[in-house]
Amino acid sequence: MARGRRVRTAATAFGRGPRAALAAAAVAAGLVLAAAACGTTVPMGAPTQSPTATTSASVPAATRTAELNASTELEQWLLNPQSGTITYNTIQVTSGGSVNVMTMLTGPFAPSGAANLTGTIETLGSGTTTTDDASAVETQTRLYSTIPTAQQTGDLADKQWNTTQVNATWQNDAMHSGWWQVLFQAQDLKMEGVTGLGGASVDVFSQVIDLAQLPNVPSSLLDSEALRKAGTTKVEVDVETLTGSGKLAKVIYKLGLPAAIDISATATSTAGYEVDLSNLGGPSPTPSASPTPSATAPAPETIADGEGDVDLAAMLLF
Rank of each mutant, 00 (worst) to 15 (best):
G4I: 10
R5C: 10
R19W: 10
R19C: 15
A21L: 07
A23W: 00
A28G: 14
G30K: 05
L31K: 02
L33C: 11
G39D: 11
M44S: 04
M44G: 05
T48N: 06
Q49Y: 01
P60Y: 05
R64T: 08
A66G: 05
E75W: 04
W77A: 07
S83Q: 05
G84Q: 03
I86M: 10
N89S: 10
Q92C: 01
T94F: 03
S95T: 11
M102R: 10
G107S: 06
G107Q: 04
F109M: 12
F109S: 10
A115K: 05
N116F: 02
G119E: 05
T120D: 08
L124T: 00
T130G: 09
T130C: 02
D132V: 15
T139D: 01
Q140A: 14
L143M: 11
Y144N: 11
S145G: 15
T146E: 09
D158E: 12
W161D: 02
V166R: 03
W170Q: 01
A174N: 09
G178Y: 14
Q181A: 13
E192I: 13
E192D: 12
G196P: 02
G198Y: 03
G199H: 03
S206G: 08
V208F: 01
A212I: 09
P215L: 05
L222Q: 09
A226F: 00
L227V: 15
A230P: 04
K234E: 15
D238L: 13
G246W: 01
L248Y: 00
L248A: 00
L248T: 06
I252L: 11
I252Q: 03
K254R: 15
A260W: 03
I261C: 05
S264Y: 06
S264M: 12
T268L: 10
T270S: 14
G272V: 10
Y273N: 01
E274W: 04
D276I: 14
D276F: 07
L277T: 05
G281P: 09
S284I: 07
T292P: 04
T292S: 10
S294P: 01
S294C: 00
S294G: 08
A297P: 00
A297Q: 08
A299G: 08
E301I: 12
D309A: 13
V310R: 00
D311E: 15
L317N: 03
F318V: 08
